[in-house]
Design a protein around this nucleic acid. Structure first.
Lengths: 147, 147
DNA sequence: GCGCGGGTGGGGAAAAGTGGGGAATTAGGG
DNA sequence: CCCTAATTCCCCACTTTTCCCCACCCGCGC
């Protein structure tokens, strides 16, 4: 079970490559064999799942009823934009142009560790997202840290 | 279960390193393997949780549903400002520049043991905080400890 | 006084992040 | 079917940061 955490601002070179922060790599279980799945996330960002965490997600998608039109739409969208990838010898992932465009990422990327997944954001878009949230850091902490 | 207590004023060197007081270290259960999680706290301070205490919090974060937009914001915010760290051979933690900035900590740090967590404050900010409390210690005691 | 444990500081080796060149593979057109 | 062009990816090199280790200082107790 992964437990990614932390916030990093890394650069994207002109080949669309992004290094995975060493601290995040340490949280990846070895079973995953450096195999990752990249897909469109919610709110204009990209999700990166290590293989083992993805498998769980895939199971729950399989559980969706085939006969429901919305379920079909959901699966098509999710899987249609998902790609396998493995790290190169420098521990980097390469993002496709479509993925970069979807998330609006250019030269810089904000990398967030969110337990079972890693999120990639354009820094400006994330700032905008944060600004539009009704909750502040303190209300979040209060809600989550108090049982 | 940890039960940190006490108050210490330590120095922060120019690499952002802070020694964990020996008295606090004695309260850490060995199971945690000298692994800690540092995150933003309430009121401009930093929280340090030993691994085993953190695990309880992480459970409640995992309980948040992936499909709820507000829950997504919660996990991003909380985890984005959290970092793993382990002690170096001198029993110190290294604080990132962002964390130092958030808490306004410069060369000196006030370390408080508060049961399951350790808090780090800038001494001046803590003094200010204390001064701005409307209630005195005695009135709070009445309110809090009354059955 | 001397030894030991605890706090403070810094130098150097190792790792992490960044960028680019060139070979191999694939695709497309003549 | 072959040649050419474009893309992918593998490898190398440089820079910065991290962290590991050593050394010192201070105070307390033996």
């Amino acid at each position: 079970m992964s437990s990614f955490k932390g916030r990093f601002t890394y650069s994207v070179d002109n080949k669309g490559r992004v290094a995975l922060p060493a601290k995040l790599r340490k949280s990846v279980s070895n079973a995953t064999n450096e195999n990752f799945i990249i897909l469109r996330g919610f709110e204009r960002c990209l999700y990166i799942y290590p293989q083992d965490e993805w498998n769980k997600l895939e199971e729950s998608i399989r559980g969706l009823t085939f006969s429901d039109a919305q379920h079909r739409f959901f699966s098509r969208t999710l899987l249609g934009w998902a790609t396998d990838c493995q790290l190169d010898s420098q521990q980097r992932v390469t993002l496709s142009q479509e993925h970069l465009d979807y998330a609006g990422i250019k030269n810089e990327v904000l990398i967030l560790g969110v337990l079972e997944r890693i999120e990639l954001w354009d820094p400006a878009i994330y700032q905008e997202y944060e600004k539009n949230q009704p909750a502040t850091y303190e209300t979040v902490v209060e809600r989550v840290l108090k049982p």
